[in-house]
Amino acid sequence: MKKTILNLFALALLASCQTAVNEEKSTAVGSEGWLAGTSEEKFEEVAHQLGGFSKAMVEVSYRYSELYWAGMDENWGYAEHQVEHMIEAIEDGLKRRPVRAESAESFMKESLPAMEELIKKENKEEFIKGFRALTSACNACHAKEGESYIMIREPEIRTSPVRF
């Protein structure tokens, strides 16, 4: 009988501890407490703030333009830097939207590595040809996703203050 009472007491204690663990305090964090809710709700909000693939494409667009101007300036270190960050931005976007991976595969495994190799040659004429091939690959990827209305062209206006 004593064992049964002790076992019941132990089970009741365990259940109350489990309930305490499951009842999470909701503490707002961030500037002025904008991030509120349970941990799960906060993670959902952060995921929403990061967005899907479109926010990654905003960064890729910036890096694409900077890559172009780096090549025009023959600033090969800066060009290499841009390709590295394009790869990172796309990889991050693919983590959030893995459904895009199939369309991006040749771009990631062929187009960007080809651009990296061209940059190593430090030849502006070859860079321009390679950049045009990269642009075509961008547009091909968009077409694979059914978004051929997103047409990429070589930058015409330089918006960055970075110069070599």
Rank of each mutant, 00 (worst) to 15 (best):
K3A: 15
T4Q: 06
T4Y: 07
I5D: 02
L6P: 07
N7T: 13
N7Y: 13
A10D: 07
L14R: 07
L14D: 09
T19A: 15
T19L: 14
N22Y: 09
K25R: 14
K25M: 08
S26R: 15
S26N: 12
A28G: 10
A28Y: 03
G33D: 09
G33C: 07
W34L: 15
W34G: 07
L35G: 02
T38I: 07
T38Q: 02
S39W: 08
E40N: 15
E40A: 15
E41S: 10
E41F: 04
F43M: 15
A47F: 08
L50F: 11
S54F: 09
S54N: 14
A56G: 01
M57N: 11
E59I: 11
S61M: 08
Y62P: 02
E66S: 10
E66C: 04
E66H: 05
Y68C: 00
A70P: 05
M72F: 08
E74Q: 15
N75Q: 06
N75R: 10
N75C: 11
E80L: 02
E80R: 01
Q82E: 01
E84S: 11
E84N: 15
M86D: 04
E88I: 11
D92Y: 03
D92I: 02
G93E: 00
L94I: 03
K95M: 09
R96E: 05
R97C: 14
P98M: 01
V99P: 07
E105P: 05
S106W: 05
S106C: 05
S106Q: 12
F107H: 05
K109H: 14
P113Q: 03
P113S: 04
A114N: 10
A114W: 01
M115H: 01
M115Y: 00
E116M: 08
E116F: 01
L118Y: 02
I119S: 01
E122M: 09
K124S: 06
K129N: 11
G130R: 01
F131A: 02
L134E: 02
T135E: 09
A137R: 02
C138K: 04
A140E: 15
A140H: 07
E145W: 04
E145L: 15
G146I: 03
G146N: 09
S148A: 14
S148Y: 03
S148K: 12
M151D: 12
R153Q: 14
E154Y: 05
E156V: 09
T159W: 08
T159L: 13
S160Y: 03
S160P: 04
P161C: 06
R163T: 11
F164R: 14
